[in-house]
């Protein structure tokens, strides 16, 4: 049998960190809590992106899923009085539909690499423009506010930030669990194989289309939920902040910079983007929005060149050496 389990210092650290996170809302000022909620929600969305991004499916379309996730429950609530508890799943359904409609032909015709990025980029832009064009109901580029209902579980609205903090924490942990589940499953190996050589993978019985679609659907669905919660939290939606190319680019940047091959990498990416956003806001005032995209673009290139496995990748390398290559065959 196994020897008595040694106490894993990582587990202890994890539990301590979780305890701190649970205690946090009771000891911190509101502004700080606002920052942490954003880190958790973005961290969740970046984690969702990296579930497929880590296999080389670099989607610039996740802004679309986020936008759909944000707008569908808000519109249903404002115009039909439908609770977000139904509106959020409706958003997920539409996001998944979009993901399949774009993903299936891409995978069928082996649209990969830059071309995949371009096709998905177009999706981002189409959703952004659709939201902007439907200004009669969405408020166009001026944005829209949800009808307020005070403190309400039915409307999923809470003036007290601590409620959203709790929700964000649970959802973020859920995202980490999904990430881990994909990481531990044999599907991860199958997807690694597919990303390296589709034909060889198929020759071993791997249903390439099925595996790709599955991971895409999971990623899109989670991103949609993230968008919904953002909308609910802010109670104000603007197409530029929850959809479009800028948002997609931010997602890609954060996931790559934080490290998409590590559990906490995307969350580290969220720290980075939030810090960057807040820093830019403080330094440049309100006219920083254009600057942010340029800076993300430049940083993304720098990371891809100098730190392709992101910050967490560097940390992991320091902690443990890479797996050994095969010894010279003794023949």
């Amino acid at each position: 049998m196994n020897p008595p389990r040694a106490i894993n210092p990582l587990h202890v650290a994890g539990i301590a960190a979780l305890a701190c996170l649970i205690a946090l809302p009771f000891v911190t000022p509101a502004y700080f809590l606002h920052i942490v909620i954003q880190i958790l929600l973005w961290g969740f969305i970046y984690t969702a992106w990296s579930i497929m991004g880590r296999f080389g499916f670099v989607s610039l379309g996740h802004g679309a899923f986020m936008g759909v996730g944000a707008y569908v429950p808000a519109l249903l609530w404002n115009y039909e009085g439908v609770t977000p508890w139904l509106g959020i799943p409706a958003g997920v359904a539409l996001s998944v539909l979009l993901a399949v409609v774009i993903g299936y032909p891409c995978f069928r015709f082996r649209v990969i690499g830059h071309y995949f990025a371009l096709v998905t980029l177009a999706l981002s832009e189409v959703v952004l423009r659709t939201i902007t064009a439907a200004r009669d109901i969405t408020g166009g580029s001026l944005g829209m506010t949800q009808k307020l209902a005070g403190h309400s579980w039915y409307a999923l609205q809470f003036p007290d930030k601590r409620y959203f903090y709790g929700i964000a924490l649970v959802v973020w942990l859920g995202g980490l669990l999904v990430w881990r589940w994909v990481d531990r499953g044999i599907e991860r190996e199958a997807l690694e194989a597919i990303s390296e050589d589709e034909e060889a993978a198929a020759s071993l019985g791997i249903d390439v289309m099925r595996e790709k679609l599955r991971v895409t659907v999971v990623s899109a669905a989670l991103t949609s939920v993230g968008g919904s919660l953002f909308g609910q939290y802010l109670a104000y939606l603007n197409p530029e902040t929850v959809s479009g190319i800028a948002v997609s680019l931010q997602i890609v940047f954060a996931a790559i910079a934080g490290g998409m091959y590590a559990l906490l990498g995307p969350t580290v990416g969220a720290f980075l983007t939030i810090a960057l956003n807040e820093g830019l806001r403080v330094w440049f005032g309100t006219n920083f929005i254009g600057a942010a995209n340029t800076i993300y673009g430049i940083l993304l290139i720098l990371f891809i060149i100098f730190m392709p496995r992101g910050i967490m990748g560097v940390i992991e390398n320091l902690r443990m050496p890479r797996r050994a290559p095969a010894p010279a065959p003794a023949e």
């Binding site: 044999i186 190996e189 199958a190 690694e192 194989a193 390296e196 050589d197 034909e199 060889a200 993978a201 020759s203 071993l204 019985g205 791997i206 249903d207 797996r323 095969a326």
Partner: peptide, 25 residues
């Protein structure tokens, strides 16, 4: 394959386990 096409990101045993897992459902 005439020219071997191993999955280089995976170990030997992972390469073969994939085949054993997916290859006969």
């Amino acid at each position: 394959f005439q020219i071997p096409r191993p999955f280089r990101k995976l170990s030997l045993i992972e390469n073969v386990t994939l085949a054993a897992y997916f290859g006969n459902g």
